[in-house]
Design a protein around this nucleic acid. Structure first.
Lengths: 154, 154
DNA sequence: AACAATGTCGAGTGGATTACTCGGGTTTGA
DNA sequence: TCAAACCCGAGTAATCCACTCGACATTGTT
Protein backbone atom coordinates (compact mmCIF):
# COMPACT_ATOMS: atom_id res chain seq x y z
CA UNK A 1 0.00 0.00 0.00
CA UNK A 2 2.72 2.48 -0.88
CA UNK A 3 2.71 5.22 -3.43
CA UNK A 4 5.40 4.88 -6.10
CA UNK A 5 7.97 7.58 -6.77
CA UNK A 6 5.73 8.92 -9.51
CA UNK A 7 3.09 10.05 -7.06
CA UNK A 8 5.59 11.35 -4.55
CA UNK A 9 7.83 13.21 -6.98
CA UNK A 10 4.84 14.47 -8.89
CA UNK A 11 3.35 15.95 -5.75
CA UNK A 12 6.63 17.68 -4.95
CA UNK A 13 6.96 19.07 -8.44
CA UNK A 14 3.41 20.39 -8.37
CA UNK A 15 4.01 22.00 -5.02
CA UNK A 16 7.15 23.61 -6.42
CA UNK A 17 5.13 25.04 -9.29
CA UNK A 18 2.40 26.17 -6.92
CA UNK A 19 4.94 28.14 -4.91
CA UNK A 20 5.81 30.05 -8.03
CA UNK A 21 2.34 30.37 -9.44
CA UNK A 22 1.95 33.56 -11.46
CA UNK A 23 5.66 34.08 -11.98
CA UNK A 24 5.77 32.74 -15.52
CA UNK A 25 7.23 29.47 -16.77
CA UNK A 26 9.70 27.62 -14.55
CA UNK A 27 12.32 25.54 -16.39
CA UNK A 28 12.42 21.85 -15.59
CA UNK A 29 16.02 22.13 -14.56
CA UNK A 30 15.15 24.46 -11.72
CA UNK A 31 12.43 22.22 -10.36
CA UNK A 32 14.65 19.16 -10.62
CA UNK A 33 17.53 20.86 -8.87
CA UNK A 34 15.35 22.44 -6.25
CA UNK A 35 13.79 19.10 -5.37
CA UNK A 36 16.89 16.99 -5.88
CA UNK A 37 15.32 14.89 -8.61
CA UNK A 38 16.63 13.55 -11.90
CA UNK A 39 15.74 15.96 -14.69
CA UNK A 40 15.15 13.20 -17.25
CA UNK A 41 12.83 11.27 -14.99
CA UNK A 42 10.92 14.28 -13.78
CA UNK A 43 10.34 15.20 -17.38
CA UNK A 44 8.38 12.01 -17.89
CA UNK A 45 6.17 12.71 -14.94
CA UNK A 46 5.53 16.32 -15.75
CA UNK A 47 4.73 15.28 -19.29
CA UNK A 48 1.86 13.15 -17.98
CA UNK A 49 0.68 16.01 -15.83
CA UNK A 50 0.76 18.28 -18.83
CA UNK A 51 -1.24 15.88 -20.98
CA UNK A 52 -3.81 15.81 -18.20
CA UNK A 53 -3.97 19.61 -18.22
CA UNK A 54 -2.66 20.08 -14.69
CA UNK A 55 0.41 21.90 -15.96
CA UNK A 56 1.09 23.87 -19.09
CA UNK A 57 4.35 24.52 -20.89
CA UNK A 58 6.17 27.08 -23.01
CA UNK A 59 8.75 25.72 -25.39
CA UNK A 60 12.03 27.23 -26.45
CA UNK A 61 14.48 29.46 -24.61
CA UNK A 62 13.06 31.10 -21.49
CA UNK A 63 10.39 28.41 -21.57
CA UNK A 64 9.30 26.10 -18.79
CA UNK A 65 6.27 24.79 -16.96
CA UNK A 66 3.53 26.37 -14.90
CA UNK A 67 0.28 25.24 -13.31
CA UNK A 68 -2.65 24.84 -15.64
CA UNK A 69 -5.13 26.07 -13.02
CA UNK A 70 -5.11 27.99 -9.77
CA UNK A 71 -3.50 26.13 -6.86
CA UNK A 72 -6.81 26.28 -5.01
CA UNK A 73 -8.49 24.21 -7.72
CA UNK A 74 -5.92 21.41 -7.94
CA UNK A 75 -6.34 18.64 -5.39
CA UNK A 76 -3.91 15.97 -4.33
CA UNK A 77 -6.37 13.50 -5.79
CA UNK A 78 -6.08 15.11 -9.22
CA UNK A 79 -2.33 14.64 -9.17
CA UNK A 80 -2.33 11.11 -7.78
CA UNK A 81 -4.93 9.92 -10.28
CA UNK A 82 -2.85 11.15 -13.20
CA UNK A 83 0.37 9.57 -11.99
CA UNK A 84 -0.80 6.46 -10.17
CA UNK A 85 -4.01 5.64 -11.97
CA UNK A 86 -7.52 5.40 -10.56
CA UNK A 87 -7.72 5.24 -6.78
CA UNK A 88 -8.62 2.00 -5.02
CA UNK A 89 -6.95 -0.63 -2.85
CA UNK A 90 -7.94 -3.45 -5.18
CA UNK A 91 -8.69 -3.53 -8.89
CA UNK A 92 -12.23 -4.61 -8.15
CA UNK A 93 -13.31 -1.34 -6.51
CA UNK A 94 -11.18 1.08 -8.45
CA UNK A 95 -12.84 4.36 -9.38
CA UNK A 96 -14.09 3.98 -12.92
CA UNK A 97 -16.16 6.75 -14.50
CA UNK A 98 -19.35 4.71 -14.61
CA UNK A 99 -19.31 0.95 -14.72
CA UNK A 100 -18.55 -1.86 -12.28
CA UNK A 101 -15.77 -4.35 -12.81
CA UNK A 102 -16.36 -7.13 -10.33
CA UNK A 103 -19.05 -9.61 -11.28
CA UNK A 104 -19.56 -10.99 -7.79
CA UNK A 105 -20.54 -7.68 -6.24
CA UNK A 106 -23.77 -9.17 -4.93
CA UNK A 107 -22.32 -11.51 -2.39
CA UNK A 108 -18.72 -10.37 -1.84
CA UNK A 109 -18.08 -9.01 1.66
CA UNK A 110 -14.46 -8.06 1.09
CA UNK A 111 -15.81 -5.62 -1.40
CA UNK A 112 -17.56 -3.69 1.35
CA UNK A 113 -14.27 -3.30 3.17
CA UNK A 114 -12.32 -2.23 0.09
CA UNK A 115 -15.00 0.24 -0.93
CA UNK A 116 -14.97 1.88 2.47
CA UNK A 117 -11.21 2.09 2.31
CA UNK A 118 -11.28 3.59 -1.16
CA UNK A 119 -13.87 6.17 -0.17
CA UNK A 120 -11.86 7.25 2.79
CA UNK A 121 -8.71 7.64 0.70
CA UNK A 122 -10.59 9.60 -1.94
CA UNK A 123 -12.07 11.87 0.68
CA UNK A 124 -8.67 12.84 2.05
CA UNK A 125 -7.00 13.23 -1.33
CA UNK A 126 -9.81 15.23 -2.89
CA UNK A 127 -10.12 17.36 0.21
CA UNK A 128 -6.68 18.92 0.02
CA UNK A 129 -5.60 21.41 -2.61
CA UNK A 130 -2.17 22.76 -3.46
CA UNK A 131 -3.27 26.07 -1.99
CA UNK A 132 -4.14 24.37 1.29
CA UNK A 133 -0.69 22.82 1.44
CA UNK A 134 1.00 26.13 0.76
CA UNK A 135 -0.88 27.66 3.67
CA UNK A 136 0.14 24.79 5.93
CA UNK A 137 3.69 25.23 4.75
CA UNK A 138 3.76 28.85 5.79
CA UNK A 139 2.39 27.90 9.19
CA UNK A 140 4.97 25.17 9.57
CA UNK A 141 8.14 27.15 9.30
CA UNK A 142 7.92 30.83 8.45
CA UNK A 143 11.65 31.00 9.05
CA UNK A 144 12.34 28.33 6.48
CA UNK A 145 10.59 30.06 3.64
CA UNK A 146 13.91 30.67 1.92
CA UNK A 147 14.60 26.96 1.91
CA UNK A 148 16.61 25.85 -1.10
CA UNK A 149 15.60 22.25 -1.52
CA UNK A 150 12.65 20.16 -0.48
CA UNK A 151 12.61 17.04 1.62
CA UNK A 152 14.88 14.46 0.04
CA UNK A 153 12.95 11.51 1.40
CA UNK A 154 9.45 11.90 0.11
CA UNK B 1 -1.80 2.30 -4.19
CA UNK B 2 -2.99 -1.27 -4.60
CA UNK B 3 -2.87 -4.10 -2.14
CA UNK B 4 -0.84 -7.12 -3.29
CA UNK B 5 -2.32 -10.59 -3.53
CA UNK B 6 -0.96 -11.31 -0.08
CA UNK B 7 -3.32 -8.88 1.57
CA UNK B 8 -6.26 -9.84 -0.58
CA UNK B 9 -5.86 -13.60 -0.33
CA UNK B 10 -5.01 -13.34 3.33
CA UNK B 11 -8.20 -11.46 4.05
CA UNK B 12 -10.20 -14.08 2.21
CA UNK B 13 -8.53 -16.93 4.05
CA UNK B 14 -9.15 -15.26 7.41
CA UNK B 15 -12.78 -14.71 6.52
CA UNK B 16 -13.05 -18.38 5.58
CA UNK B 17 -11.64 -19.34 8.97
CA UNK B 18 -13.94 -16.89 10.71
CA UNK B 19 -16.96 -18.51 9.11
CA UNK B 20 -15.94 -21.79 10.67
CA UNK B 21 -14.80 -20.42 14.00
CA UNK B 22 -15.34 -22.94 16.79
CA UNK B 23 -15.57 -25.94 14.48
CA UNK B 24 -12.05 -27.20 15.04
CA UNK B 25 -9.08 -27.08 12.65
CA UNK B 26 -9.76 -26.53 8.97
CA UNK B 27 -7.24 -28.13 6.60
CA UNK B 28 -5.43 -25.79 4.24
CA UNK B 29 -6.69 -27.78 1.30
CA UNK B 30 -10.28 -26.91 2.10
CA UNK B 31 -9.61 -23.21 2.41
CA UNK B 32 -7.61 -23.18 -0.81
CA UNK B 33 -10.28 -25.05 -2.73
CA UNK B 34 -13.10 -23.03 -1.25
CA UNK B 35 -11.44 -19.78 -2.22
CA UNK B 36 -9.95 -20.99 -5.48
CA UNK B 37 -6.38 -20.28 -4.39
CA UNK B 38 -3.16 -22.22 -4.83
CA UNK B 39 -2.55 -24.38 -1.79
CA UNK B 40 1.22 -23.92 -1.87
CA UNK B 41 1.00 -20.16 -2.03
CA UNK B 42 -1.71 -19.85 0.56
CA UNK B 43 0.42 -21.90 2.90
CA UNK B 44 3.08 -19.20 2.82
CA UNK B 45 0.60 -16.52 3.71
CA UNK B 46 -1.11 -18.45 6.44
CA UNK B 47 2.28 -19.28 7.87
CA UNK B 48 2.94 -15.57 8.36
CA UNK B 49 -0.45 -15.14 9.96
CA UNK B 50 0.32 -18.03 12.28
CA UNK B 51 3.68 -16.58 13.31
CA UNK B 52 1.85 -13.38 14.13
CA UNK B 53 -0.62 -15.28 16.31
CA UNK B 54 -3.68 -14.50 14.23
CA UNK B 55 -4.18 -18.15 13.38
CA UNK B 56 -3.18 -21.32 15.14
CA UNK B 57 -2.53 -24.78 13.76
CA UNK B 58 -2.76 -28.45 14.61
CA UNK B 59 -0.26 -30.70 12.87
CA UNK B 60 -0.70 -34.22 11.63
CA UNK B 61 -3.73 -36.01 10.26
CA UNK B 62 -7.03 -34.27 11.00
CA UNK B 63 -5.01 -31.13 11.58
CA UNK B 64 -5.54 -27.73 10.09
CA UNK B 65 -5.81 -24.06 10.93
CA UNK B 66 -8.16 -22.00 13.05
CA UNK B 67 -8.35 -18.42 14.26
CA UNK B 68 -6.08 -17.53 17.14
CA UNK B 69 -8.66 -15.18 18.67
CA UNK B 70 -12.35 -14.47 18.42
CA UNK B 71 -13.45 -12.96 15.09
CA UNK B 72 -14.66 -9.87 16.94
CA UNK B 73 -11.12 -9.13 18.13
CA UNK B 74 -9.35 -9.44 14.79
CA UNK B 75 -9.42 -6.34 12.62
CA UNK B 76 -8.66 -5.95 8.95
CA UNK B 77 -5.74 -3.80 10.04
CA UNK B 78 -4.26 -6.70 12.01
CA UNK B 79 -4.29 -8.88 8.92
CA UNK B 80 -3.02 -6.26 6.50
CA UNK B 81 -0.16 -5.27 8.77
CA UNK B 82 1.06 -8.85 8.97
CA UNK B 83 0.93 -9.46 5.24
CA UNK B 84 1.70 -6.08 3.75
CA UNK B 85 3.84 -4.52 6.44
CA UNK B 86 3.23 -1.32 8.39
CA UNK B 87 0.52 0.92 7.01
CA UNK B 88 1.38 4.18 5.28
CA UNK B 89 1.33 5.67 1.79
CA UNK B 90 5.02 6.58 1.92
CA UNK B 91 7.93 5.11 3.85
CA UNK B 92 8.36 8.40 5.64
CA UNK B 93 5.09 8.25 7.58
CA UNK B 94 4.79 4.52 8.01
CA UNK B 95 3.49 3.37 11.39
CA UNK B 96 6.50 2.47 13.47
CA UNK B 97 6.07 1.48 17.12
CA UNK B 98 7.77 4.60 18.47
CA UNK B 99 10.32 6.50 16.43
CA UNK B 100 10.25 8.80 13.44
CA UNK B 101 12.05 8.03 10.21
CA UNK B 102 12.04 11.26 8.24
CA UNK B 103 14.59 13.84 9.31
CA UNK B 104 12.91 16.77 7.62
CA UNK B 105 9.66 16.49 9.54
CA UNK B 106 9.94 20.09 10.66
CA UNK B 107 9.43 21.75 7.33
CA UNK B 108 7.96 19.09 5.02
CA UNK B 109 4.39 19.84 3.90
CA UNK B 110 3.89 16.67 1.91
CA UNK B 111 4.27 14.90 5.20
CA UNK B 112 1.08 16.49 6.49
CA UNK B 113 -0.82 15.12 3.54
CA UNK B 114 0.63 11.61 3.83
CA UNK B 115 -0.01 11.51 7.55
CA UNK B 116 -3.62 12.44 7.11
CA UNK B 117 -3.96 9.78 4.46
CA UNK B 118 -2.32 7.17 6.65
CA UNK B 119 -4.53 8.02 9.59
CA UNK B 120 -7.64 7.72 7.51
CA UNK B 121 -6.58 4.32 6.16
CA UNK B 122 -5.72 3.08 9.64
CA UNK B 123 -9.05 4.25 10.97
CA UNK B 124 -11.00 2.26 8.41
CA UNK B 125 -8.86 -0.85 8.66
CA UNK B 126 -8.76 -0.92 12.43
CA UNK B 127 -12.46 -0.17 12.64
CA UNK B 128 -13.64 -3.35 10.95
CA UNK B 129 -13.38 -6.80 12.50
CA UNK B 130 -13.91 -10.21 10.97
CA UNK B 131 -17.08 -10.46 13.02
CA UNK B 132 -18.37 -7.23 11.50
CA UNK B 133 -17.77 -8.58 8.03
CA UNK B 134 -19.57 -11.83 8.81
CA UNK B 135 -22.57 -9.83 9.92
CA UNK B 136 -22.48 -7.77 6.74
CA UNK B 137 -22.20 -10.96 4.76
CA UNK B 138 -25.36 -12.39 6.27
CA UNK B 139 -27.16 -9.15 5.48
CA UNK B 140 -25.88 -9.17 1.92
CA UNK B 141 -27.22 -12.46 0.71
CA UNK B 142 -28.97 -14.73 3.20
CA UNK B 143 -29.85 -16.96 0.27
CA UNK B 144 -26.22 -17.37 -0.70
CA UNK B 145 -25.05 -18.67 2.65
CA UNK B 146 -24.45 -22.11 1.17
CA UNK B 147 -22.07 -20.58 -1.36
CA UNK B 148 -19.24 -22.91 -2.29
CA UNK B 149 -16.50 -20.53 -3.35
CA UNK B 150 -15.69 -16.94 -2.68
CA UNK B 151 -15.23 -14.13 -5.13
CA UNK B 152 -12.52 -15.11 -7.60
CA UNK B 153 -11.44 -11.57 -8.27
CA UNK B 154 -10.44 -10.15 -4.93
C1' DA C 1 21.13 33.41 -39.60
C1' DA C 2 23.16 30.93 -35.93
C1' DC C 3 23.05 29.37 -31.47
C1' DA C 4 21.74 27.99 -27.10
C1' DA C 5 18.14 27.08 -24.01
C1' DT C 6 14.46 24.90 -23.53
C1' DG C 7 10.45 21.32 -24.10
C1' DT C 8 8.90 16.57 -26.63
C1' DC C 9 9.09 11.85 -27.61
C1' DG C 10 10.06 6.94 -27.71
C1' DA C 11 12.97 3.26 -26.71
C1' DG C 12 15.88 0.74 -23.70
C1' DT C 13 17.55 -1.31 -19.29
C1' DG C 14 19.15 -3.06 -14.72
C1' DG C 15 17.31 -4.19 -10.45
C1' DA C 16 13.65 -5.17 -7.34
C1' DT C 17 9.41 -7.16 -6.38
C1' DT C 18 5.57 -10.25 -7.01
C1' DA C 19 3.40 -14.35 -7.22
C1' DC C 20 4.12 -18.15 -7.33
C1' DT C 21 6.20 -23.52 -7.55
C1' DC C 22 8.88 -27.38 -5.71
C1' DG C 23 11.00 -30.64 -2.87
C1' DG C 24 12.00 -32.38 1.25
C1' DG C 25 11.08 -32.45 5.88
C1' DT C 26 8.12 -33.38 10.60
C1' DT C 27 3.98 -34.53 13.22
C1' DT C 28 0.08 -37.20 14.36
C1' DG C 29 -4.46 -39.83 14.14
C1' DA C 30 -6.24 -44.17 12.42
C1' DT D 1 2.80 -48.35 9.42
C1' DC D 2 0.65 -45.23 6.57
C1' DA D 3 -1.37 -41.29 4.96
C1' DA D 4 -3.01 -36.82 5.91
C1' DA D 5 -1.79 -32.93 7.30
C1' DC D 6 1.50 -28.89 8.63
C1' DC D 7 6.49 -26.75 8.17
C1' DC D 8 10.31 -24.70 5.79
C1' DG D 9 13.65 -22.93 2.55
C1' DA D 10 15.06 -22.44 -2.12
C1' DG D 11 14.21 -21.31 -6.77
C1' DT D 12 12.07 -18.76 -10.73
C1' DA D 13 9.45 -16.59 -14.50
C1' DA D 14 7.19 -12.51 -15.23
C1' DT D 15 6.19 -8.03 -14.18
C1' DC D 16 6.97 -3.51 -12.66
C1' DC D 17 9.77 0.35 -11.16
C1' DA D 18 12.84 3.91 -11.60
C1' DC D 19 15.25 5.51 -14.18
C1' DT D 20 18.70 6.71 -18.61
C1' DC D 21 19.61 7.95 -23.40
C1' DG D 22 19.40 9.89 -27.82
C1' DA D 23 17.28 12.37 -31.34
C1' DC D 24 14.30 16.05 -32.45
C1' DA D 25 11.32 20.45 -32.29
C1' DT D 26 10.64 25.18 -30.81
C1' DT D 27 11.85 29.75 -29.62
C1' DG D 28 14.30 33.93 -27.66
C1' DT D 29 18.73 36.23 -28.19
C1' DT D 30 22.63 37.98 -30.50
Amino acid sequence: MRLSTKGRYGMRAMLALARRYGEGPVPLKEIAEGEGLSEAYLEQLISELRKAGLVRSVRGAQGGYFLGREPATITAGDIIRVLEGPIGPVQCVVEIPGGEVCDCAEYCVERILWERLRDSIVQVLDGITLADLLIEERKLAPANSGLERGCQQN
